[in-house]
């Protein structure tokens, strides 16, 4: 557990109902600063709903989301979506990539620095006349973008349309774009989905780099257990909207509740290799949960 570390995000009793459907049911966990926290769980466990509550796309029915940044606390459930990103410093990526497809790679990273630049351009007034202060700010923004492009190996393609990039590059660009907002916590929704083994290796490297060098907390939803088990410091397992396990990767892997949750789905691609290997030894009859939902 992360009790001895600085908490970055504290989720308390988060519940999200859509009509009669309870998507997230009384979930509490803590994501520590400078740690990678993974949220895993079978399809439909409510992982993305937690993310959408965190980043202001949904207003939680019940619960508190406390974000601590530079000593000040922000209650995310009371903030507007754009303020969550700007003030509280929560940046996110999306399960289905949401880049600005017709804009260039560089422009994508500059849009992420909009608030900084908008201030420097005195809300466009200084910008229209090309004042020095704005030009300097723009150069700095481009340098920041250049830094991230170098980091994700896209420097050569900086002037290409983002929509024309290969899939893996688009994923990494989306992460770089989120990092350009200068976040305190980076939320990644299935960053390894659709990546080949080499690309997901690169991704692991990028995420640990972000954690260690940029002192940023990372919260990720992931199905790819090779990513989760290798780089996470802390894993939270959801099933049917409830938290069923919480702890270090090793603890979670050994947790019978987790094994039960994953066993319930026969022949499921969600069943990670590591867990499947564990299951081979511990399979018990009668613990399978009802199927056909998710």
């Amino acid at each position: 557990m992360a009790s001895d570390k600085t908490p970055l995000l504290e989720v308390e009793h988060l519940t999200m109902r859509f009509g009669g459907l309870v998507a997230v049911d009384d979930v509490s966990f803590v994501a520590a600063d400078r740690e990678i926290t993974a949220i895993i769980g079978p399809n439909g466990a409510g992982k993305t709903t937690v993310f959408n509550c965190l980043t202001g796309f949904y207003k939680p029915t019940v619960g508190m989301l406390r974000m601590t940044r530079n000593g000040s606390e922000f209650l995310l459930e009371r903030m507007e979506g754009h303020a969550i990103a700007r003030v509280a410093g929560v940046a996110r990526t999306f399960q289905n990539i949401r880049l600005f497809a017709n804009m260039s790679v560089l422009e994508n990273l500059l849009v992420a620095q909009h608030n900084k630049l908008q201030l420097a351009s005195a809300f466009s007034l200084a910008g229209v006349f090309g004042f020095k202060g704005y030009r300097k700010a723009e150069r700095e923004a481009i340098d920041q973008a250049r830094y991230w492009l170098d980091r994700i190996n896209l420097l050569a393609r900086a002037d290409f349309s983002a929509g024309n990039l290969p899939y893996g590059d688009q994923r990494r660009l989306e992460i770089a774009r989120a990092m350009c907002t200068g976040p305190a916590m980076l939320c990644l929704d299935e960053p390894a989905a659709g990546l080949n083994p080499r690309e997901s290796g690169d991704l692991n490297e990028l995420l640990t780099f972000i954690r260690d060098e940029h002192k940023t907390g990372v919260l990720l939803i992931e199905h790819d257990m090779s990513v989760v088990m290798k780089i996470s410091d802390h894993v939270v397992v959801l099933d049917y909207g409830r938290k069923i396990s919480d702890g270090s990767p090793a603890e979670v892997r050994a947790d019978p509740a987790v094994i039960r949750a994953y066993l319930g789905e026969e022949e499921d691609e969600d069943l990670p290799d590591e867990i499947a290997a564990d299951l081979a030894g511990k399979q018990e009859a009668g613990t399978a949960r009802p199927e056909g939902q998710g």
Binding site: L99, F100, A101, M103
Partner: peptide, 22 residues
Amino acid sequence: LPIGRAWEALREDDIACQSLGI
């Protein structure tokens, strides 16, 4: 200018815009 790029970004994907603090 930033506002112009934000306009185009809004046209491309307004949900992503919000997630970037715009």
